[in-house]
Design a binder for these strands. Structure first.
Length: 272
DNA sequence: ATACCGACCTGTCAGC
DNA sequence: TGCTGACAGGTCGGTA
């Protein structure tokens, strides 16, 4: 489901509501897929500890976990990746347990943090010490580093944008939307994109991500944030999901092709 | 080393 | 009313 703007929205919502709360107990379901660390390890890292901060890194949500007693600062982190359909919900304990609930954290404030994920592409893990993420943060990278990412790559520019080892957090929607704004066809070889076009892409990508965060992300089918609220950036999509509809700039029908197994949308006239 | 492609899952929707 | 196939915001590992 979620790309950078959605994960950012969820992380901010969670941070606002449960930073400082204490995890009293952890229940993990019996489906093995969501657990990237052993269940016993996840439980032992979390139970009896404080959630001291919640932040996004790429598409990961990083819960910083610290012991209650100060002194030995055994820092650890709980890492949640939402995959395609993962959701984190804050619920009162009496709320009905949704189908496909794979984890429940009981908090000292009497609330529960629940992880629900029908397709089970999401992943839960714990790390000791700092979480090390790959790739550059698209909202922070400067033009020079950004340009270097694509140097000599024969892969389509869109595949490069989706490669989390280069940039972390860009997914299918925002790859298509930023390429449209930059006037670049998604199937162009990365190495064949000119410096001037990369400069446009660098700017377009940040612009699209920032606008999307402002609007709470894109709700395409069932995405909701930590408060159960939908985002509104889907109303601003110019190409994603608009195949056959007129380009908003030139009226040419938007085309849909498949690149690296992902649906890709572009205007054949505005994007070169 | 790099880059496609299927696999991993469930749910929904269109078409017959 | 089914049934089937295509498709969905992501990532990984095998293969070429």
């Amino acid at each position: 489901m979620p790309e950078l703007p959605e994960v950012e929205t969820i992380a901010r919502g969670l941070a606002r509501r449960i930073t400082g709360d204490v995890i009293e107990s952890v229940w993990l379901g019996d489906k093995p897929e969501p657990l990237k660390s052993p269940a016993a390890e996840i439980a032992s890292v979390l139970v009896g500890k404080r959630i001291s901060s919640i932040e996004r890194a790429g598409k990961h949500i990083v819960f910083e976990i610290t012991p209650l007693e100060r002194g030995h600062s055994a820092k650890a982190a709980w890492i949640v990746h939402l995959g395609m359909t993962g959701r984190l919900q804050i619920c009162p304990p009496e709320a009905e347990i949704a189908k496909h609930t794979h984890a429940i954290l009981k908090l000292r404030s009497e609330r529960e943090l629940r992880f629900v994920d029908p397709r089970r592409f999401g992943r839960l893990s714990v790390v000791h010490g700092e979480f090390r993420s790959t790739g550059a943060e698209p909202l922070e990278i400067d033009l020079e580093l950004f340009t270097k990412l694509f140097h000599g790559r024969k892969t389509p520019i869109k595949s490069a944008l989706l490669n989390q080892k280069l940039l972390r957090g860009v997914g299918n929607i925002y790859a298509d939307e930023s390429l449209y704004r930059a006037g670049i066809r998604p199937q162009r070889r990365a190495a064949a994109v000119t410096r001037a076009q990369l400069a446009k892409l660098h700017r377009a990508l940040k612009e699209v991500l920032r606008e999307a965060i402002t609007l709470g992300g894109s709700s395409v089918s069932d995405y909701v944030d930590a408060d159960g609220e939908e985002g509104f950036f889907q109303l601003k999509h110019r190409v994603y999901g608009r195949q056959g509809k007129p380009c908003l700039r030139c009226k040419t029908p938007i085309r849909r092709i498949v690149i690296a197994g992902r649906s890709s949308h572009y205007c054949p006239k505005c994007q070169k």
